[in-house]
């Protein structure tokens, strides 16, 4: 894995262009946490930048977060007012099936959520005053595809421990929100 970490300059050209406007706010730090889950609920990546309050240990926290997203997904699919056939509450949904959500807001934080067709869930927790984060989440997913999925040394379904993707994903997230 050493050689992979050393070639940052050449690899950088593979990066898709940053979506316009995402870096315009300057290097403020509005991001609190970033989670990446796979379809089975394994936390592939967790980073935090500003988290003064910790109520649970890390493993419990990841489980609670995944459970919240799972339940909110079935909640939104069931309550969707525009669809006649809603299915049953509590039945596991396939990625992209039924109505999904992309963010929720409380008085202390905003959770931005994206689910890809392969079941990867990206969660970015930011300050409640930040705007729509769907484009930045797509960009982070692009980084995941470029640096993790295309890496032959990565074993699918295990936490991401490669140096380069973690570096790129976290530096993008910490500098752009």
């Amino acid at each position: 894995m050493q050689f992979f970490g050393g070639s940052a300059t050449t690899e950088a050209s593979l990066l898709p262009a940053a979506p316009p406007g995402t870096g315009a706010g300057g290097p403020g730090n509005n991001a609190h946490m970033l989670y990446i889950f796979n379809r089975a609920g394994v936390c592939l990546l967790y980073r935090e930048w500003n988290r003064p309050l910790r109520t649970l240990n890390q493993q419990q926290d990841h489980k609670l977060m995944f459970g919240l997203l799972f339940s909110l997904r079935s909640f939104t699919a069931k309550i969707d007012p525009t669809v006649v056939e809603k299915g049953n509450l509590g039945v596991p949904l396939l990625p992209g099936q039924g109505c999904s959500f992309y963010s929720f807001k409380t008085n202390t934080y905003q959770l931005n959520f994206m689910e890809t067709p392969s079941g990867i869930k990206l969660i970015l927790i930011t300050h409640p005053k930040t705007g729509d984060q769907r484009e930045p989440l797509k960009y982070i997913y692009n980084l995941y595809v470029e640096y993790v999925v295309k890496n032959p040394l990565y074993v699918p379904g295990t936490p991401i421990q490669l140096i380069l993707p973690v570096y790129h994903i976290t530096s993008y997230s910490s500098s752009n929100f």
């Binding site: 939104t76 959500f101 807001k105 202390t108």
Partner: peptide, 20 residues
């Protein structure tokens, strides 16, 4: 409220879904 990164969270105010 349990997942909040800072103290004083009172729960979800607004949930934005695709269709509502």
């Amino acid at each position: 409220q349990q997942l909040s990164p800072t103290v004083g969270c009172t729960g979800i105010d607004l949930l934005r879904a695709d269709t509502f």
